[in-house]
Simulated scan of single mutants.
Amino acid sequence: MKVLVQESHQLTPDNPPAGDKFFCDERWLNLVETVYGYQITRLEVRGSDGQSSCGYLPVCTLRSPLTGRRVVSLPFSDVCPMPVADTPAANQLVDQALELGRQSHARYVELRIGDSQYMRERSDFVASDMYVRWRLALEPDEDTIWADVQKPVQRQGRKSRKMGVTIRFADRREDMALYHRLHVGTRTGKHGMPSQPRKFFLELWDRFAADGTLQVLFAEHEGSTLAGMVLFAYGDTVRYAYGASEERFLHLAPNNLLMWESIAWAKANGYQLFDMGRTAKDNHGLMEFKRKWGASMDPLPYYYSPRMAGLASTSESSRKYQLLTTCWKHLPLPLASNLGGMLYKHLG
């Protein structure tokens, strides 16, 4: 673990939303390092006593022969908050990230820290507004939450139940291999994108299942697994992280039932927010799907210096993106699984 320390006289850091701290958890950072072989630097600003923390930001140095060199906070993370005491501490952290980029000859620095007044005041970064996040407040009772779901979605959920679809929570490590199979099929056939390697999902189980942070649900019917959903339960938030389904079973509406059962589980277990995750603004189908659940949309800017670059800044409607996805959709699933596992680390 590598830490850079600078001194500040402010001693009380602001706290980002509790659920967002998942992506700063050492277990997540270690998982990213282990699975993808990245080097993560834990940047920190400390107070004049040398002990108290006034700011913290993990950043990752990526060196890829396919996608070049860059510094990112943080790959494969929707948002990586930067808790700081004040503007000077924030600027010290960002300056450290820029210096790390210069030392590693990076093409650009990308900070996925969420909407930030500190970053808005910096002229050496540009903001990308390609993404939003959808979050559902869980303070109301369950009946009120259900009433806010649009009627077509409610009907699909009831239909799924009436047709005999059931929900099972994963209770063994082998279930992650089952989810990975679903995930590869969805990423390949529907999205036309490489999938995380099988090892990633097994590591998720090993690091997060024991204390309940990881929850994995499956929709099942007459001995078949129709769909799966991966949740991260952290702080006051349950985050919808990944979802996958068998296209031939979509007439049974398993995804709607999975989503509702996930929301109901989060409410029953005392969580305050259900985070439906990052969504590209030009993915109109997914935007509408999340809107129908009664969730609120919030901005999710990413910040780049000296310019926007990389996959996270590529529009899903661009020719480059469309060419990649069209080609990938034609791959046989075994080949897509193996290739995706090898290529995915280059996409962070």
Score class of each variant (00 low, 15 high):
5 V>K: 14
12 T>R: 11
15 N>Y: 09
23 F>P: 04
24 C>H: 15
31 L>S: 06
48 S>C: 08
69 R>Y: 08
76 F>P: 10
81 P>Q: 05
82 M>P: 05
86 D>A: 00
90 A>Y: 02
97 A>H: 07
105 H>T: 04
105 H>C: 09
111 L>F: 08
129 D>M: 12
132 V>N: 09
133 R>M: 13
136 L>P: 08
139 E>C: 13
142 E>A: 12
149 V>M: 06
152 P>L: 09
166 T>H: 09
169 F>A: 15
170 A>W: 00
183 H>E: 05
186 T>I: 01
199 K>R: 09
202 L>E: 13
206 D>V: 04
211 D>V: 02
216 V>P: 11
218 F>E: 07
219 A>P: 14
227 A>P: 10
231 L>A: 05
238 V>R: 02
244 A>E: 06
248 R>D: 12
252 L>A: 01
253 A>S: 15
257 L>P: 01
262 S>Q: 02
263 I>S: 00
265 W>A: 11
266 A>G: 00
266 A>D: 01
268 A>E: 12
268 A>K: 14
269 N>D: 03
273 L>D: 08
279 T>Q: 11
282 D>P: 07
285 G>P: 05
293 W>I: 03
296 S>G: 09
298 D>I: 06
298 D>C: 08
309 A>K: 09
310 G>M: 01
313 S>Y: 04
317 S>Y: 06
319 R>K: 11
321 Y>E: 05
324 L>D: 00
327 C>H: 12
330 H>M: 13
330 H>L: 14
332 P>L: 01
335 L>P: 13
342 M>S: 10
345 K>A: 08
